[in-house]
């Protein structure tokens, strides 16, 4: 079962190898791009997972519910935004954290706000965006994204419904055990 999970990456590696055989230059380019993505991953993903483990072990459920749970209101929304924005790294790093959040009783729309904020309002990324595309571009994009993220989180929570949310949270809890 465990080995089967690695079929997908092996097939992809075979594909890259085939391209390399057909055209060395494109193959090398592909590998160098993969290399830089891999470095990006290594620069943030391992500590994120360790922080996640520590969070899971040390922070009690009650505390998280108080700040981010059903009754957390505006404070919970702002906090979810800030947590997502303070992050670094690609979006797939946010999913395991979201799973622990769900397990610990974070309000579902706050989980979605966290994901939204992580995807597009990360502070280090924002600095970089300002530097390359200009303050006007970066600030305008941020200004449109903040209400958008909020709205999408609320709509997604509504259309998913209580039952499915319960199932998703149970599933997430079983993964992060």
């Amino acid at each position: 079962m465990k080995a089967k999970r690695y079929v997908f990456p092996l097939v992809t590696a075979g594909l890259v190898f085939a391209v390399f055989a057909a055209d060395n230059q494109i193959g090398l380019n592909a590998l160098s791009i993969t290399g830089s993505s891999f470095l990006e991953m290594l620069s943030v993903i391992p500590p994120i997972f360790i922080l996640l483990g520590l969070l899971d072990v040390w922070i009690p459920r009650e505390k998280i519910i108080r700040h981010l749970g059903e009754e957390s209101g505006i404070k919970g929304i702002v906090l979810s935004f800030l947590l997502g924005a303070a992050a670094a790294g690609p979006l797939y790093g946010a999913f395991p954290i979201a799973a622990v959040f769900m397990k610990k009783g974070v309000k579902f729309s706050n989980v979605l706000i966290f994901i939204g904020a992580w995807s597009t309002t990360k502070i280090p990324m924002f600095m970089f965006e300002m530097g390359s595309l200009g303050a006007g571009f970066a600030l305008l994009r941020l200004a449109i994204n903040i209400p958008g993220i909020l709205l999408m989180a609320i709509i997604l929570e509504r259309i998913t419904g209580k039952e499915s949310i319960g199932a998703i949270c149970a599933q997430a809890a079983s993964i992060s055990e």
Partner: peptide, 29 residues
Amino acid sequence: ALKKAWRSFEGILPELIAILLFVGLLIAL
């Protein structure tokens, strides 16, 4: 905590490797 960290990381590792390889290929093309 470290055990949990490793298990979550290993959980997405195969997909992650495939994704990184595939995207490299796509952008190079």
